[in-house]
Design a protein around this nucleic acid. Structure first.
Lengths: 144, 144
DNA sequence: TTCATATATTTGTCACATCAAATATTGACA
DNA sequence: TGTCAATATTTGATGTGACAAATATATGAA
């Protein structure tokens, strides 16, 4: 197998690594009694960590486009894991908040995901992890 | 803004960085006269680098599932950038090969993508890049 | 006040990801 | 030879990515 550009590109290798990690996460979550995707879980985490947010804030915080946040929140709302509340003084906006049901699910699912992550990075030294994290953040800052 | 798990996870930061890079790539490609996605371009590159492959080999090489390769090759074939050929001795399989039109497009689009990549990683030192690449490969190997 | 512009959110369309299941063909073995 | 498991590929259902356009509401300036 010849080496292609792909093999030397952080971008391409990121795409592969991320796909594998996402797959593992989905598989691990599927084994629990809960039905939720990683993307939905991320939104729950943000709400739990930062408190209620409107759609625009949410979309900036999770780095996703408004349109996609709308659909993710739709799904979460259908499962009663979050709620959309009216905002006083601005009828355009919605304040999204996590429900008790959402918090419960979050607490039960998050250890599964953490475990997958620990396994995925088990061959990486602390130093390597720190450098990689820093590289990724630099790329993000540069492109954002 | 509180720090969440996300901020310390290579996985989450990869997701963000990759999203931004993909977006830049799509935007840059959109400015050319060519209409092709990154995923389709990757398949072209693999075929150009490694020569004809059947769907299964292709799916392993690009680290995507068979089902997805089928659909990507469908799109490439519709644009006449690749061809599906019969395999002697196994009527189940297809040998996919890049067409002349595919090679031409590839040659014209690849500099655009390389440029985006160079820009995205312009603040990263050679050493950091090497370490990150190595970390990603270790994760891939571990999860594969 | 009224109109133009900005902001918040949603909807539509297409590409791609997942998994499961369907099809077709091959190959090994009783 | 007939049968059954393995292999190669495709299709279907669902969720999420991108972008553009639609909708509703706010806001600032004439």
């Amino acid at each position: 197998m010849k080496k292609s550009l792909r093999d030397k590109s952080i971008g391409a290798q990121m795409a592969i690594a991320l796909q594998l990690m996402k797959r593992k996460n989905h598989q691990a979550i599927a084994k629990t009694e809960h039905k939720i995707t990683m993307e939905q879980l991320v939104v729950l985490e943000i709400l739990k960590t930062n408190g209620d947010m409107n759609m625009t804030e949410l979309s900036k915080t999770v780095w996703k486009q408004n349109a996609n946040i709308t659909r993710i929140v739709d799904k979460l709302e259908k499962q009663e894991l979050v709620r959309r509340n009216a905002v006083k003084g601005d009828r355009r906006a919605n304040l999204v908040s996590i429900t008790t049901k959402g918090e419960t699910l979050f607490k039960e699912v998050i250890p599964v995901v953490v475990e997958v992550y620990k396994d995925a990075t088990s061959t990486i030294s602390k130093e390597e992890e720190a450098i990689t994290l820093n590289v990724l953040k630099k790329i993000i800052l540069h492109l954002a």
